[in-house]
Structures are given as C-alpha cells and as structure tokens.
Design a protein around this nucleic acid. Structure first.
Lengths: 361, 361
DNA sequence: TTGTATGCGTTATCAA
DNA sequence: TTGATAACGCATACAA
C-alpha cells in the first residue's frame, strides 16, 4: 500500500498537477485496471464484487480520481458532446433555445459545444468541421436555410442532426419548430376581428422556413378572411433585424399608405416597424397596429407593449435535444418533426383602426 | 445506412460511416504515419519535404481526412476546449459576454463548452467536474461569488481560470470586469446634477463583487456630493431579478417615501423598480428618477427609456478570453485584472425632481 | 468475478 | 528528412 500518504489528495510519486488515472486507482485498491474500469462505469458496475467495488470506489475518492472523458471518447468513439450552432447568440431569440438544449443535454450527462455562424457559410463550415473533428456525437442547428448544402451533405453522411426553430426543404431531418402558420393565422384573425382590412406583412427572408411559412400563412389567412393582399402589401425584409424591418416598413407604407395594420415577420422586424412609424409620425396603435412574432424577452415592456405571437423557445430547445438523444439511442428511428403550439399574446400595439373601414361601394 | 457504396469520397474498405485516419492518409500517400502527422500539423509542417507534403495533403483531401481532436487531446493532454460557466444564459447580461468569449476563442481555434449553473453550488460543482473530466484547457467563470470555495480550490490546484463580469475576494485570479465604481459614481453625479438630494439605492446581492462595489461606490459618491444616506435609503435585493427589484423598491419607498431618485443595482432591478413605481402610482421620471446598470439590450425601447450605465459586455468576454489564452501560453504570467470603462447613458427615466430641493433651513 | 491483452488515433522520441 | 516505436487513459473481448 501507500507509504506515508502525502497530506491529502495527492497521489504518490506523480507530479502534483497530474490527474490520477485508472491505473493509480487500481494500484491503490490492489486490483487490475480492468476491474477498476468496470467498477467506475455505471453500466458494468454490477460485474464486480460488492466488496471490491467499495474498495475501488474508496480508493478513487481518496485519490480524487476523475475519469478522463477524452481517453474514454477515443476508445468508445462517443464523446457525450453535442455541437450547437446558432446564427448569433446575442439575438434574443436564441438564448432561451440554447438554454433549453443545455438543460436537456446536461440531464443526460452531455456537454454542449457552442458556436456562432453569423449566417455566414464559411464560418458555419469551419465551425461545423471543428466540432466534427472533436467527434461531437451529434448536432443541433438553429441555422438552417431552406436549401442548405452543408446541412444536406451532413444529413446524407448520416451525421446525427436535429434542427431547431427553422427547418429545411426536402430533407428528412428531425426538427422542433414553433407553429409558424398557426401563429400567423391568429395574428391576422386578431387584426381582422378588430376591424382591420388593409393589413400588410413585413416578411422575413424567404430562404428561411420561418420567413416563407409565415408569409404563406399570412396570404392564406387574409384570403380566408376575404381580405385583399394587393401588390406592395407584402414586403420581404433582407434579414430578421430591426433595421431591415424599419426599411421594409417604409417601403410598405410608401406603396400602401392606407395600411392600418402590419404583421411583422418577427419581433425585431416589428421593432423596426415601430421605429419607422415613429419617424413617419404615425401613431401605434392609434393609426397603425403592429403584431410581432416570437414574444422575445421584454417586448412587453416597450412602448407600446408589443402584441406578438408567443413561441415556447425554451421548450423548443428541450424538444430538439430530446429528439437528438433519441436519435443517438436509436439511429434508425424515424425523423420526427415536432411542431410546438404558438399563441397570440395581445398587448398594446394593436387596436381597432382609427377610421372605420371604408364604406364606399 | 445505404447498402450501395457511397458515391464519392469513400475510403477503400472501411465501413461507410467511418472517418479516415492518419494511417489511411499515410498509406494513400505512400509514407509513414508519423510523416503524415508532421505534414498535417502546422507546427511541424516545415520538417517535411515540400514534395511529400503536397502528396500527403493531396491524399488527405482525396480521403476527406479530418484530424481526430479526441485522439490528439489524449496524446498531447491539451484539448483546445474552454469551459464557460454562466449563471443563466437567458439573463440578457450574458449572451453578449459569451459571444465575446466564443469570438475570441474561435479565432484561435478553441471550442467553447457552455454550461449554466443557476447560481446553484451543486449544479456548478457538477458542471465544473464534467468539463474538467473533459480536460478543458481552462475555464472562464461568470459565476464568481466574493467567497467561492469551488473557485478557490480550483485556483489553488492551478487550474487555468479567468473571471468575467464578477470578481472574487482575496484571490489572485485574472479577471475582466466593468468599472462598477466609476459607473455608479457617474450615476450619482448625474442625479445630483439634476438637483436630486434624496437618492436611494437598490443594491445587488452583497456576496457578489458587483453588488458590493456598486453599493460602496454609491455611498462614497453620495458622501462626496454631501448628500445624506439615511437608514432605509439603501435596500439590498435578494437577487439580480425584476421581482427582487420590485420588492426592494417598495421597501425603499416605504422607509423613505420622499425619495426622488433611485440608483438600481442593475437593469433588471431597475425594471422591477419601474413596476413598483407604476403600482404605487408614482410617475417615472416625473416623481421618481431611476438609473439602471449594464445597458442591456432593448432597455432603450422600454417606457420610459432607461437611463443606465453602459458596460461593454462583448468586449468583457473578448478580454476574458484573451486573458485565458495568454495564461495558457504562459502559465506563470501574473494575474492581470482588467477593468473596462463604464459610461452613463442618459435616457428618459431620469429628470429633475418635481419639487425643488427643500429650501427650509 | 477478475485478470490479460489489445487497440482507439495521434504525437513525441529516437534512429536511420 | 523520414521511419519505427511507444505511449496517452480507457474499455472490452477473451481467458482464467
């Protein structure tokens, strides 16, 4: 056994800043490495005698043994690490999603490798390659475009992949997204019920599933309410940003000055629209109502408090992680697509139109 | 997967979903593993003949070789991965910090391992252990309390550690934080210049460096302006949350009903204070002015737009990452503490007091 | 139930 | 400049 054990938590002759290995534990417990390995692994724990198990565990504790996940990963070819790619963490949409992901993953002992892509193909490729070289067991992408080369190739190679928030065209990849269509429909219904007839849409980028789905749902809902969507009433923003929203709103009101309500592609676009309205001296909701999408943090505090479609982002993250874990457990499972309910939250940015709907023939 | 051999980029006889290894590349190029290794590593690249280098690189490309970071990590005992611990990513304070960290780390080829602790000791311990078992090369903690057992022990063990946003007492750990004292001083000076004399402080938790520093700076600045800080004018919040701010604000106004201005420990506390004021029917800034701290995203959009102290959070993250990289490069470097400038941003939540400062004797 | 032997993919050391 | 060999720490097939 050990001669004079150094103060505490040291391990014999090894240099002070070295971690003890399974070999050290085995030596300390007087067993073979393999037995120590079995004792430390929950899955093989029952293969070892109860008594020796206690001895080994005790030795491990005494030495402060921590299993080396890197070595284990090399041996087992599984790292219990998941790559998470988001466009930009400072977009308030993503923190709750990522939080949901990490919460679910951590519960199963998985670690989250986080990377931002800034919607840049080259950055995304580089980050994805880096995480793949790290042998992440799977990926959760919040960066999907409807057509996505990198994503398609990865899926074809059989890389375990799950999409969150956005989805992709023509590919059987599991995903967890909000019900964009239903949310948009509720927004239009709300405005129609208030008496609005000239409703515009500031659409998100059409190469993103959210942008396209919401735009189509908008037209469909308008049609269903027998409301017209004349040329210029739908303007596509260059991005999900405040500034793109501001610019698009000006174009919308330029083409359709009598617009009384706007369905924005998301909350950032809605904020931009509010700015544009303020610049143009048009009151919201007095003259123009605005509905957002996502119910980002603090949009209830702005002026006017934003009517918007709530999407359960944390739960989106949880479900995405859950899907990935299931897929890792059973690689041949069918690629589920989860749609989480969205619901309109009415606040102060919507009101009946100031002038009654035109009563002329 | 598919029975049909994959179209292109397959590697001889290996099973379809296997990555090619250095051995495969070496065989393809007709050299030894070791030579291939040297060719693929930027640091040893020049040890290899230019011609064979091209041959190896070509072979690697043909096979789609990606170095296995796990194996490299086992061999070199360095993983190029950094553990990042935050209390809660959905607190708007942290996304820009984390973004700054990942930006700087990614630039040097490091990967970010992200974990949330929810200010819970046990969660933090577990997450830290998990990341350590993964052999992260170092850690950036946004979770520091002034006295922090886990942190202290890790520092003593020589684990490369950097603190961000918050710091710790009595420990030589590098850190990057905002200039809390200077920011608070500016806030008080601003209010005093507006004519406020009865200024209260909703202090953050005093076991956090930010809470203590700002509280002390508040008292010091008040003293410097010859303004009194009577009992009850400083209330400590139970946390950096809206609700804690709301409750504390009620206690403050209960004890000191004639308060005309409030310096909040941070923006969330300020938001809670605004809520409390609204509940009590006290206008802001008409009756009570409020100053926040941090300049979180979108506090310029709320009503009233929040006067607050801007802290360069992204840069805080960048600097923290930079400190850690330096420390990894030179483990014996001195533990720098970086203080980034904070500056008051005046918006709509502050105004001169409604009643002129009491003119009685 | 435990011990033996081997290899995961890479890099460091030594020889040639 | 290149090749041979060993070792990083662990898990597992096989033997005992």
């Amino acid at each position: 056994m050990s001669e004079h054990p150094p103060p505490a938590g040291a391990w014999g002759s090894r240099s002070a800043s070295q971690s003890p290995t399974l070999a050290d534990v085995a030596r300390e417990a007087g067993v073979h490495k393999a037995t120590a390995s079995r004792a430390m692994n929950p899955l093989t724990r029952d293969q070892v005698n109860a008594d020796t198990f206690r001895r080994i565990l005790h030795a491990a504790e005494r030495l402060g043994y921590v299993p080396n996940t890197v070595a284990r990963g090399l041996r087992t070819n599984r790292t219990a690490a998941i790559g998470v790619l988001v466009p930009d963490l400072t977009n308030p949409l993503f923190p709750p999603i990522v939080r949901g992901i990490t919460d679910r993953l951590a519960a199963d002992g998985y670690t989250t490798l986080l990377a931002n892509t800034d919607n840049d193909d080259e950055q995304e490729r580089a980050q994805f390659a880096a995480l793949e070289s790290r042998r992440a067991d799977g990926f959760i992408l919040a960066t999907a475009r409807r057509e996505h080369r990198l994503l398609a190739r990865a899926a074809e190679r059989g890389v375990p992949l799950v999409l969150v928030n956005r989805t992709v065209d023509d590919l059987d990849v599991p995903s967890a997204v909000g019900d964009d269509a239903a949310g948009t429909t509720q927004a239009v219904a709300h405005l129609a019920a208030l008496g609005h007839r000239r409703i515009g849409h500031l659409a998100g980028p059409q190469d993103l599933s959210t942008g396209l789905t919401r735009q189509r749902a908008f037209r469909h809902a308008m049609d269903g309410a027998s409301l017209p969507v004349p040329p210029g009433a739908v303007v596509t923003c260059t991005g999900y940003t405040e500034d793109a929203g501001r610019l698009a709103c000006r174009r919308l009101l330029d083409a359709r000055p009598d617009t009384t309500a706007i369905v924005a592609g998301n909350d950032l676009i809605a904020l931009g629209a509010l700015t544009a309205l303020a610049e143009l001296g048009r009151g919201c909701p007095a003259e123009v109502s605005v509905v957002g999408f996502n119910d980002m943090a603090f949009v209830d505090k702005i002026r006017p408090p934003l009517t918007t479609v709530h999407v359960p982002h944390h739960e989106l993250g949880v479900q995405a992680a859950q899907l990935l874990l299931e897929r890792l457990h059973d690689p041949h499972a069918v690629a589920k697509k989860i749609l989480l309910p969205a619901r309109l939250v009415v606040r102060g940015s919507t009101a009946p139109p100031a002038t009654a709907p035109s009563a002329s023939p």
